[in-house]
Amino acid sequence: MNIGRALSLCRTQKGMTKTKLSQVADVSISYLTLLEQGKRDPNLSTINQICKAMNIPTSIFMFLASEASDRDGISNELAEKLSHTALSLMEPESEQA
């Protein structure tokens, strides 16, 4: 799992700064930075909290965080297409109703 990569991808795709996400998710900016750098491993509760703040289903976030070895039965090509589709469907925060 690469939680940091998924967090960075989702946050930027949503057009959120670390400051904004930290406020909405109620976690510190320094903690978000450490997560994105892969220097901390959040618990599931924290992942859910961050996903809720970004308005992203936790299951999609976890798929985006998965590595090839985590996706038994899904080809890398299909995983790339699914990841691209999921990211393209995420509206930046300013465009959400």
Rank of each mutant, 00 (worst) to 15 (best):
M1T: 15
M1W: 14
N2F: 06
I3V: 14
I3T: 02
G4W: 00
G4Q: 03
R5P: 02
L7G: 01
S8Y: 02
R11G: 13
T12H: 06
M16A: 03
M16H: 04
T17N: 05
T17H: 07
K18P: 00
K18N: 05
K18M: 12
K20R: 12
K20P: 00
L21M: 01
S22L: 07
Q23H: 13
Q23A: 11
V24L: 01
A25L: 11
D26W: 04
D26Y: 06
V27T: 09
I29N: 09
S30P: 04
S30A: 09
Y31D: 02
L32W: 03
L32E: 02
T33W: 01
L34K: 11
L35I: 04
L35C: 00
E36Y: 10
E36R: 08
Q37H: 08
G38H: 07
G38S: 13
K39H: 11
K39N: 09
K39F: 08
R40T: 00
D41K: 11
P42R: 06
N43K: 06
L44G: 10
L44R: 11
S45F: 14
T46R: 08
N48P: 04
N48A: 09
N48D: 15
I50K: 08
C51W: 09
C51M: 11
C51G: 13
K52F: 07
M54W: 01
M54G: 00
M54S: 00
N55S: 14
I56F: 08
T58G: 06
S59M: 09
S59A: 10
M62W: 03
M62Y: 03
F63D: 10
F63P: 07
F63M: 15
F63Q: 11
A65K: 05
A65W: 05
S66F: 03
S66I: 08
A68G: 02
A68P: 02
A68V: 05
S69C: 04
D70N: 12
R71H: 03
R71T: 04
R71P: 01
R71C: 08
D72P: 11
D72K: 15
D72A: 15
I74R: 13
I74L: 14
I74A: 10
I74D: 06
S75K: 08
N76P: 06
N76H: 06
E77N: 10
L78Y: 02
E80H: 15
K81I: 12
L82A: 12
T85K: 14
A86W: 00
A86R: 00
A86D: 00
A86C: 06
S88L: 05
L89V: 11
M90F: 09
M90Q: 13
P92D: 03
E93P: 02
S94H: 12
E95V: 12
A97W: 13
A97P: 15
A97N: 15
A97V: 15
